[in-house]
Write a protein that binds this DNA or RNA. Structure first.
Lengths: 247, 247
DNA sequence: CTTGACCACTGGTCTGGACCTGCGTACTGT
DNA sequence: ACAGTACGCAGGTCCAGACCAGTGGTCAAG
């Protein structure tokens, strides 16, 4: 037994102590949008290696307290963007709707994992529609909707509007939509996703997977990928809790 | 005019290429629970610095493909644990219920941000109940329930059971629970949370915040923190949306 | 006034070390 | 047979430095 009577406060890692100091500095001496000193100056000021400082900055970024852009600098972030995830999929409140049409078409190149969830063969033809969501001119997420051609022969042009997957499905299937199953997990952005989200590859993202059930099978799959640093998912029938007085 | 006719594949970062190679290796040559070679050997084998290898490993861990334990090694992970987030908060399917009682009591030390959401003064007395959830003997999450003493004078002993926040609230308020608002976002584990979750400080976590409305105010706040690497949040399991509205 | 080349500055990537600390096992004394 | 210790190995932390790659401004040429 290595039990010693001394207090031995277990010595937090240096990067965590640094994070705490930076949080206080951010909350007391800086305001939203203000640029912090560069990493080399900060590491010198705190007497740590730049790698250690970056470990603290990365956590602050993941928390949504900082935004970092190569070539530009590190700025104090504002509150996170609320992404409303409704049971009835009515639209995108607070987000400029469907700003960019990225991909519309039918493909056989569906990741095997998704093909299994859709209940189709690995190389079956599947309609794919991808949109990017922006908020205040900044990319916040990518939504990709998969519909097997076995379910819907052709994708009508109404996909170009600003509605979400369920609404599209409702049109396509003449109100046969029966239910949905949804999951949320953390993933990392692949290079192409990272480029669309204006982040480096491997950035943490929130992945919302929604399976739409119609006619006793999974008729469509919506995979939405949001920047973990800037987004918060809001659930519930009521409006999001007012975060105005939360300083 | 930087446009050249060459393909110029834009050179993925080395850590991402490494990640891709490791994913293939994991899926083809390893099985769940199997231990990978140590980091020094792996970095030598792939001809990269250990820091670069670790950058790839950290992403694989965040994706839930690997589990790393100091002193033990890096093992291939199994599928993520499904955390059921129901609208009616009926319990914890698939998770050993309420394995450890951590804190039961009344405190004035509530983070200012939570006090604001609860609609109480920063130093008001608030009941706090904290539980840790395990799955297969592994810690997966921490749930903390806050109830202002202004809402409920005393916390009855039935908090010791395995039920979730809403059920408790229903008992406390005699079925006056009116609704809830829920949000999901990414955060980092503070040292104490990290210790309970058996992870280093600053580890990415999924934070599920649920505000319970009763009597026209926020009567309680449940903050659940799950390991982002091992958990997946599941919503609306087999819950058919009864709305068959004819559009 | 507009355009484009240039360039200082920023965060991003990568190296090759060093040492710390938890874990598990082998050994060893009782 | 058992408990305690010692030790090797694993991942975790930290360092000092180098170079890469976008950003955004300056400034001269058209």
């Amino acid at each position: 037994m290595a039990t010693t009577a001394t207090v031995e406060v277990a010595a937090e890692p240096k990067y965590w102590h640094l994070r705490t100091v930076l949080v206080q500095a951010i909350e007391s001496e800086f305001t939203t949008g203000q640029t912090l000193p560069n990493e080399r100056d900060l590491s010198a000021r705190f007497g740590v290696a730049r790698a250690t400082l970056r470990q603290a900055l990365e956590q602050l970024e993941l928390e949504g307290r900082l935004h970092r852009r190569r070539g530009a600098g590190t700025v104090v972030a504002g509150p996170r963007v609320d992404i409303t995830i409704g049971t009835h999929d009515e639209g995108w409140p607070g987000v400029e709707p469907g700003d960019r049409d990225l991909v519309d078409g039918t493909t056989a190149a569906v990741p095997g994992r998704l093909a299994a969830q859709l209940g189709v063969r690995p190389r079956a033809m599947v309609h794919r529609v991808r949109r990017r969501q922006l908020s205040m001119r900044q990319p916040v997420g990518i939504e990709c909707l998969y519909v097997p051609r076995a379910v819907v022969p052709r994708v009508p042009e109404l996909l170009g509007d600003n509605r979400r997957a369920a609404l599209v499905l409702r049109h396509l299937r003449n109100n046969t939509l029966e239910g949905l199953t949804r999951s949320v997990e953390v993933g990392v952005a692949e290079p192409e996703e990272a480029r669309l989200l204006e982040r480096p590859p491997g950035t943490a993202v929130l992945v919302v997977t929604t399976a739409y059930t119609a006619g006793g099978r999974t008729a469509a799959l919506a995979v939405a990928t949001y920047r973990a640093d800037t987004c918060r998912l809001a659930f519930g029938e009521d409006a999001p809790i007012g975060a105005r007085s939360a300083s």
